[in-house]
Amino acid sequence: MNMTAQHKGAEIGISQLSKVYHTREDEDILALDNIDLTIERGSFVAVVGPSGCGKSTLLSLLAGLIPRSSGEISIDRETISKPHPKIGVVFQQDLLLYWRTVIDNILLPIEIKKLDIAKYRDHAEELLEQVGLGGMAKKFPSELSGGMRQRVAICRALIQEPGLLLMDEPFGALDALTREQMIMDLQSMWSRLGNTVLFITHGIDEAVFLADRVLVMSPRPGKIDLDLKIDMPRPRKWAETHEDATYHGYVREIRKIFEAKGILVAH
């Protein structure tokens, strides 16, 4: 099998996936309604939508954290129903364990899977180097800034070279400048690694900037309203892209959906 960067990512298949939550008042809430989706190897897919549109449910289902109500999810044609070693997750909070050093945090998945830690140590240091945190291995999370901590969390998700990287609003808790830098760094890192990425966000701008494809979701029930292919050359530069008419065309197209659904109201 050809394992060049472009083909390292996993292929994701989702068919007729639904999720129903039962509330305490014995009501059923349809969080995801019959989703069909195929994600190509090595592509960067962003999911945008307001709170409650089911995007986080979609991520939790892919991560194997909650059971699905019906339908099927497959990674590289293999059906999954529980956490899969080919999948790495980055959450909105960095969720670093404060009693562990940076390197021990990155090696946590290896420990949990009972793999040979010594074998992954060099790889962990390499990842740290790549995200600009070389020499920080022995520090504790409390000694790092918010952006640095989220970088460590990304390294932790990447330690096993996952075919699919799930990111749940990973930059949502960061300040605007740090976020901008992280978006740029994620782009260059992804182009080097070639994983498939599913990036959940409520930021239309970062979705269009980063993704090959943007899925627009709306709530009650959670559905994909628009599957938009983003056709802009890479690497994308921050300032230039934000002045680009094509970019603004995509952003407008997504906003139009939200306006039509009453999620964004024009004044």
Binding site: S60, P83, H84, P85, V89, F91, Q93, L108, I112, K113
Partner: peptide, 17 residues
């Protein structure tokens, strides 16, 4: 923090782990 539990679960951790 419940999210920490989600995190290690996503790594395939058992309840004992």
């Amino acid at each position: 923090d419940r999210n920490l539990v989600s995190l290690v679960r996503s790594m395939g951790a058992s309840e004992i782990q």
